[in-house]
Write a protein that binds this DNA or RNA. Structure first.
Lengths: 337, 337
DNA sequence: TTGTAAGCGTTATCAC
DNA sequence: GTGATAACGCTTACAA
């Protein structure tokens, strides 16, 4: 592979001049500019990324941490983030934590090694005090989680209000005994949603059920298992708040197998308005989040922080959610499927 | 940020010795090794990735090209690839081509810039002769596509046989007039599947329909539109081969809206055995590919090529597929849902 | 407008 | 065992 030195020699000029041409800098006359350009062409020269990164102290790369890319919520986040980053000339490294605090730390280390200029976390599995240490090495943006103590940019919806809205909807449809499901037990999201759920119940005096296995509800299989448990242990439950459309889909699938009718016997509300929520039969009522807008904002804020060396300052962006009412909850009013 | 120089000074030793400790090299006595280790701890030293990349001429990073990460087929590929790469200590850059040949070239350039050590393509939008030029800069593995001319490692299933199997299944269920849908028109996959589809028809003398809009069928919305077109233009079609479960789901969704009964009026077969194919009601018959195995193999082969400097040699790995028969096609025999 | 030379933070070579 | 020193390929003062 030819280096800048080779190009300079071939063009009969100095490395400096070649460098100026590469970087579109002024102070190089048109004739020499052309000579450099044609030498670059002749030799098939391409600037070496590693050398530039070392010299310029920037990588033009960001890392995006998420649990698993197969979860549609996160793949939609990633799609938008990669697209936006690419527009700004940044590369994106995928970092799947698989819900592990240790893996999360491994990926945060990318910041200290200077392998990335900045990092977006869409899920959090360590305490903020632990994560905060990494802010010294580069900017971190939280997208989705809202940690109260976090002194950095955070992008999210009002999870408490969203859960409240969804739960109130179940209550209004006449549910008398509700179950609350969530993913990662200790996340800020779960705490906020639980609090919104409880608030809605409190207002109406409806009963609810806690169960250990309702604490790790992430995917279709979890949803199926949970419906089985509910049938065995507490068949009186007639309404379920789930934290994801996949879990809701699993519940509905299993309910159909067992001849339980949705929404009459059991109303179910999902989260995220994924394609599956529209496709299921019955379709799934769900809370819609503006995923693409949130993703775009996260990347913009991160790149701004990178380029302006901002850090250690809380900066909050709250996006709006909307409740999509569909057939998995609508008991009173007939809704065209 | 402290450098190796700072650590050396703090420990009262040379950079060389510190470097030896960092890289677990021999010829450093235990006492000094400890002194270095504790200096590193005191200063919070972390080796700078850019400097290492320049010096060692390797990035320990690979790029994975795919159309869109939200497509479940590709997100499952990516999940497995990132996991496997991570086990080997490699980072993964996501490169979404959005079906564009130009974007594909932009990402191939990562190889020439030495920003990645190697690259996996899961879809191809340029001619092989164009892509081949990049082999000079680093290894490329094709996972999913099978280009006949490609002199590199390729991992795939027998798409022709898979399409043949799926089509024969439709024929055996009594379909008299079939439609063939596919994604990217000019891909090797489409060519192979079309040829398998035709072979099955040829054997049985069944009719089939071509239509321009059947050529860009990638997602749920495309599926819905296509069913509308079929209803208007050729309602006699009673069996559809789709290249993806999402398209099949869209077709089924729209068919239900219109009161068309599946599989009696219309049998539909999907591809990939995604979650959606099990969840839909009726469930979708589909061709299963061993995505995770293919992804793992691709990463292993790529890393082997990187570390052993192999290149320019055709090397083919063909994986087995299986047809999952479900309710979207099973007319004769009742299958428990 | 152009070129010389220093240095980004590592690691490999070679001498001690 | 240990330590100077010279790269790796690039950019940027500073000089000319």
């Amino acid at each position: 592979m030819p280096t800048i030195e080779d190009v300079a020699r071939h063009a009969g000029l100095s490395r400096t001049t070649v460098s100026r041409v590469i970087n579109n800098q002024p102070y190089v006359c048109e004739e020499k500019r052309q000579r450099v350009l044609s030498s670059m062409g002749d030799l098939g020269y391409v600037p070496n990324s590693s050398a530039r990164r070392l010299r310029n102290k920037k990588t033009e790369t960001i890392a995006v941490l998420l649990p698993r890319i197969t979860n549609p919520f996160f793949s939609h986040m990633m799609e938008a983030m990669e697209k936006k980053a690419s527009e700004w000339g940044y590369q994106v490294i995928v970092c799947q934590t698989h819900y592990s605090a240790d893996k999360e730390i491994d990926y945060l280390e990318l910041l200290r090694k200077k392998q990335v200029d900045g990092l977006i976390m869409t899920s959090v599995h360590n305490d903020w005090t632990k994560i905060e240490e990494y802010l010294a090495s580069g900017p971190i943006v939280l997208c989705n989680e809202n940690m109260e103590e976090a002194n950095t940019a955070i992008i999210h919806i009002d999870q408490k209000q969203a859960a409240y809205d969804a739960t109130m909807h179940l209550v209004e449809q006449g549910c008398k005994k509700l179950a609350f499901l969530c993913g990662n037990t200790e996340s800020s999201i779960t705490r906020a949603r639980r609090s919104g759920f409880m608030k809605a119940l409190h207002n109406r005096g409806v009963a609810f059920v806690e169960h250990d296995s309702f604490q790790e509800a992430m995917d279709v299989d979890n949803g199926r298992e949970i419906l089985s448990i509910i049938q065995e242990e507490d068949p009186e439950i007639d309404g379920i708040f789930t934290g994801s459309d996949e879990v809701a889909a699993g519940i509905i699938y299993e309910a159909i197998q067992r001849g339980i009718s949705i929404p009459e016997d059991l109303a179910v509300v999902g989260f995220d308005n994924q394609t599956i929520s529209m496709l299921m039969n019955p379709s799934i009522s769900t809370v819609e989040q503006p995923i693409v807008d949130m993703a775009n904002k996260s990347v913009e804020v991160l790149i701004q922080h990178i380029e302006q060396h901002l850090r250690q300052k809380r900066e909050e962006y709250v996006f709006d959610h909307t409740l999509q009412q569909r057939n998995s909850t609508m008991r009173n009013i007939a809704v065209p499927m």
